[in-house]
Amino acid sequence: MEWIGVATYVSQLAIVVGIYAVVALGLNVQWGFTGLFNAGIAGFFAVGAYGSAILTSAASATRIGGFGLPVWTGWIAAMVLAAVIAWPIGKICLRFRSDYLAIATIGVAEIIRLVARSESWLTGAAAGIANLPRPFAGRGGSPQAALNSNLAFLAIVIAVLVAVYVAIEALRRAPWGRMMRAIRDNEIAARAMGKNIERRRLEAFMVGAALMGLGGALFAHFNRFITPESIDPMMATFIVWIMLILGGSGNNRGAILGAAVVWTIWSASEFLTNQLPLEYAIQAKYLRVFVIGLALQLVLRFRPEGLLPEQAAELRRDAR
């Protein structure tokens, strides 16, 4: 393979890692800071992807939308839309233990998947929405142009990721973050201190959902199309969970590291199994899913705090 092919592949890998890192940071706000179990990440991701696609794509006769708005408005709308969908779910489920939230979010993701698959006036059904604008896409054609386009998109993803990281890190250090940890670690004590637990949890749930929606929008514009098949409901949710748990829940740098490690290993294993003859390749694909499920169990058993544990020293300084 020529260097330019390798560089294009690596830049693509880096873009996807960046997108997953944004989603993992969103899950970190929900799970790492607040202890909320979201098992429907794929749903919020899809809402963001479709929301942005409908607003920014060119007009189409077969479905509504095609407003041709600039890409950044689509991304902001994706965040708002995902947060709006999170609101009623959180409102109903956050009074109870997170088990109920887990089931309800599975349900939301399932319904969003059904809507994406069947409402052709909104989402284009199986055909999806194609020809999405991608910033700096260039005219394409030559390998060099493809690489340049990837590098430009990578720069955008990195800028978004840094902005999200700085914002979430500021949240974590702020009194808000401390209060979230207090609620997570001792709900009764936090309640006794007069904290409005349901409201704070709802805020965290919506912020996290917004970031998942943003990740979905980035994903859709990177691929330049979105179909129901491009988001596997279970895998998209699960792979983000393993990224966060392996990286270190509660630690924002851990979430980003987890995204990089898990996605690199996942892509490398895909590269390996693609070398197999076809009759084994399909089985190998599902075997990889088995291994990632097993990996979660091993992390939970042998390194539950993840690669970069939550910074306990800082917590002690806070407490003083």
């Binding site: 098992a39 887990a102 699960f238 969970w241």
Partner: peptide, 12 residues
């Protein structure tokens, strides 16, 4: 709740 996460992994 960690057991719930583990059960999601077992499901997969």
């Amino acid at each position: 709740i960690l057991t719930v996460i583990a059960s999601l992994g077992v499901a997969l």
